[in-house]
């Protein structure tokens, strides 16, 4: 995956140092290896590689990680449909992917 990098400073990913117990689950499940555990705490070492898959947040036992909660597939059609749905106050209809 070293060949592929996406836009910098866009991914919504936050880690609460207070809540983190350093279990290392986030490091284990992240497909882009953006976490390291040092001195009993996880830290985000490469935030720009985050694809917001949410695996870290799902597997964090203490809820220390927050990732963009939108779980759409991420294609352009999905986002346009969700914009249109927001305008009309409806639930997003998806994109067919």
């Amino acid at each position: 995956m070293k060949d592929f990098r996406y836009l910098d400073e866009t991914a919504i990913l936050r880690l609460s140092e207070e809540k983190c117990i350093g279990c290392g689950n986030c490091r284990l499940v992240c497909p882009h290896r953006i976490f390291q555990v040092r001195h009993g705490k996880a830290e985000i070492t490469d935030p720009n590689a985050c694809m917001e898959c949410g695996a870290c947040a799902t597997n964090c036992p203490t809820g220390a990680i927050f990732v963009n909660p939108d779980d759409g597939c991420g294609c352009a059609a999905y986002i346009i449909n969700s914009w249109i749905a927001r305008v009309f106050g409806k639930a997003p209809s998806g994109c067919g992917c």
């Binding site: 995956m1 592929f4 836009l7 866009t10 991914a11 917001e52 991420g74 352009a76 059609a77 994109c95």
Partner: peptide, 12 residues
């Protein structure tokens, strides 16, 4: 972008 394993929804 919806098919790749490296693009984030916020980025798209």
């Amino acid at each position: 972008t919806g098919c790749t394993p490296f693009t984030s929804l916020s980025g798209v």
